[in-house]
Write a protein that binds this DNA or RNA. Sequence first.
RNA 1: GCGUCCUUAGCUCAGUGGUAGAGCGUCACAUUGACAUUGUGAAGGCCGGAGGUCCGAUCCCUCCAGGACGCACCA
Length: 738
Amino acid sequence: MAAEPRPREKSPTPAAPGQMEPRYDIKSVEACIYKKWEDSGFFNPDACVREGVTARDAEPFSMVLPPPNVTGVLHIGHAFEDALQDIAVRFARMQGRRTLWVPGTDHAAIATQSKVEKDLAKTEKKSRHDLGREEFLRHVNKFAKASHDTIVRQIKRMGASLDWSREAYTLDEKRSQGVRTAFQTMYDLGLIYRGNRIVNWDPKGQTVISDDEVQHEERRAKLYTFRYGRLANGELFPIPVATTRLETKFGDTAVAVHPTDERYRKFVGKEYDVPFCGAPLHIKVVADESVDPAFGTGAVGVTPAHSMTDWEIAERHGLPHVQVINEYGKMTVPGPVNGKKTEEAREWVAEELRKQGLIEKEEEVVQNVSVAERTGGIIEPLPKLQWFVAVNKPFKRGFLRRTTLKQLMRDAVASGRVRIGPERFEKIYFHWIDNLRDWCISRQIWFGHRVPVWYKGEQVSVGAPPAGAEGWEQDPDTLDTWFSSALWPFSTLGWPEKNSPDLATYFPNTLMAPGYEILFLWVARMILMSGVLLDSVPFRTVLIHGIVRDAKGQKFSKSLGNGIDPLELADTYGADALRMGLIVGAAPGNDVKFDEQRVKGYRNFSTKIWNIARFIQMNKPAAGGGDTSPRPDFSGRAEVKELAALKKEVSAHLEAFEFHLAAEKLYHYIWHTLADKIVEEQKAALRDGTPAEKSASYALLESLLLDSLKMLHPFMPFVTEEVYGIFRPGKMLMVEAW
RNA sequence: GCGUCCUUAGCUCAGUGGUAGAGCGUCACAUUGACAUUGUGAAGGCCGGAGGUCCGAUCCCUCCAGGACGCACCA
């Protein structure tokens, strides 16, 4: 709009002595305020008790920050998560609860290592093997440290009221001790075992990963229906099978059919020697319930070494497994395919079978390909000797009745001892548990907690090498990063130290607020670990939140380049505004589409609050200004009652974790009731009233303002703290009573 | 295949068993001392479709369509 620009004042009129600045200087105020909070020590509940701000026997409120990965910088999703938690924490603290929120970071083994490896390849054209384990780890640790510092700065910038004196790191000495203790305890219970099983091998990352780190991507593929070849008597192999992975068929040791399938019944139990593209196969026909007679030909070529399900079929029928693909995704079959990549080998086999007239059908299908979430490598199922957590194995421990880890995880939620909200996530949780298999915890990477097991020939020592003994070698592998994260709710509180006061006071945690994408990876495993190690749930309530997406609804990611720096936004609009922009409209568990306009709107709200305060403060009767009437009692006034009603609603919303509703109501009240109605109504009295009327009017406005600030504080801590301090010098809103 | 969620104003989204709300956007008007980072007001929605329960449904149930996601032994 080319509207006539009104001449703006060149510079705002400077504030009169004792008056508020005409403009709210977000950046400098927010910086000062955080320092003021930190200096007060009140982020630490011990200080609150010592200073008499919190009663010693007050009900505790505890939470641990889901530790951000030290893989670089925080994104807008972290800002959202921090805001949610800080609201809960500040509310609890103002309610007088003994409130602890523990900060920390996660070493994020694979994520961090692969980030550093990428950087290393780019800048120095070196691999980790060029550097060697020790030197490489020095690089990673340096990177992790730098990330940590950035992350801490970002978290503070958001206003998070964390007790930094208790800061933890999943790879620091205390947490390492926890990991070793947990491993040993579970090993002794028979819940951690070493086994040769089929695992998800990531050829790109050169490591095993767990089922939950595998993602599925839809790809088009060709489904071939074929016969292995001709038997010695010249007849075709009697059963056609279908597959999308022809190259794995070199490893087939059986054909499985459904037990009731009449077509194939006569073959069950028979064994055949048949050449497949020049390689001899020995195939047994077995009957197995897992086969779907309606799919394909109703017969499955069983490749135990390269398929999770086939491995299980093989176990049920005592079939041998033949590995034909190695860790680099290359064929290990003698002959023309040897050394070929799987895709090439597939083409070659297809061509060969065509030549021999063995292909009966080729059809285009869409199938899910398993991909490693961190590296993008296509998963190759391989049999390997790895460490696992047994989830289905019955066990008994002193304080626990006979159970399994799976049952234990289920019970914690089913019994209501852990409440997951919104409720729909409980269903998802149960569904996951029902499909759960043993958790593979060893990784062939260097960054992380080294598997605390030592070997000497056939001997194994868990926890530590036998004292004074020579020649013991520690397992070269490291543990899944989620193993240490799973201990987080109590490893941050002193466990496994005996008689830790923090553990006694603050465990189980009151609340945990993770995103739904780590419900299984993390939340479930915390429940598992707390259950088996402490016979307790790790937390009472899990508040699941969604993902912050960009304007198009896409996830923020480095590859899309759509990242938004929360620090930049906080500097432009204020952390207060950013928090509100993320919270309002974000129903629990739902994704949030990020909209900078909204943040801008809440920046305006900060200014509005500043101006309401400024107006009220300008009308403060001068001390000794002639009005000697007592402070009027306006507790019966409609305005006061209205505010009390609002307070009730806001409290209820906060208690129900409906932060979005509470925030919206406060916004509405302050702007459209307090400013637009009440302040306007009082203007006449303030201008033309008697000194007593002026004074009464002022007192009413001040009281309404301060109460509003109090309620808004958990949401917009900076501006509320600053303004409150102007009216109540020396007081700190953060620890005022709700 | 199993499961979860979403579909409400132009856009982004809240919400409730009793004929709908916010922010942004749009339009009109106002405004020279708290605030243009403003105020007042307006336009704008058969609350995805079809059934059902109910005195009454956007809200509960069933089915359908479209979309997102999770899980799975889709060979």
